[in-house]
């Protein structure tokens, strides 16, 4: 039996593949500490990166989170991480990001809403930690590639009691 892909199916598979490759590349740049490249090439100028608090679910309006960076603060985060002033990231953590369950939730032509699961293993200063979360990306389509406009990582942990801190970019 042969399976025939309709033209629509083939386009969807291609798009899914391109989105997955894009997210894998992002994970690689972050793991390799190529943060400036990541910031310059993969994000929009109005990027927002947030990590909601672990004790509230569903991002209620007005709640305080753990991270809520606009472009300027995220740029600052990147610079600080790279210039060695972040005492808790000097020497740099070794990280390994696992991205899976990539799913295109909505395709609005010029914008995509994408979900993915993520595990980030972090090793440094004698510790090893795993951050487990669900990511939501708003991607802006740019030719054959994308830029990230909204990047939300919802941690599944009840607390960061074991981790103590979150000093890397998830």
């Amino acid at each position: 039996m042969t399976i025939e892909l309709t033209v629509d199916d083939a386009a969807r598979v291609r798009l899914w593949h391109r989105v997955s490759q894009f997210l894998f590349r992002e994970a690689r740049l972050l793991d390799e500490w190529r943060l400036v490249e990541w910031y310059d090439e993969m994000l929009t100028g109005d990027i927002r990166y947030s990590v909601p608090a672990t004790d509230v679910r569903g991002e209620p309006a007005g709640a305080l989170g753990l991270i809520d960076d606009d472009a300027a603060r995220l740029r600052q985060r990147v610079e600080q991480l790279l210039n060695g002033e972040v005492w808790c990231e000097n020497p740099r953590s070794r990280t390994n990001r696992m991205i899976s369950n990539v799913e295109i939730l909505t395709d609005r032509g010029s914008h995509l809403d994408v979900a993915a699961n993520m595990v980030v293993y972090r090793f440094g200063h004698g510790r090893s930690d795993a951050y487990v979360g669900k990511c939501r990306f708003e991607l802006v389509v740019e030719g054959e590639s994308f830029r990230i406009r909204r990047r939300v990582v919802v941690l599944d942990h009840e607390t960061l009691y074991e981790h103590g801190k979150l000093s890397i970019i998830l």
Binding site: L64, L66, C88, K165
Partner: peptide, 20 residues
């Protein structure tokens, strides 16, 4: 809230260094 997060908490620009 914005400045709270800049300084404080496990992902702020100060508290993680205190923890460490």
């Amino acid at each position: 809230k914005s400045h709270y997060l800049t300084f404080l908490g496990p992902a702020g620009f100060a508290t993680p260094d205190d923890i460490e």
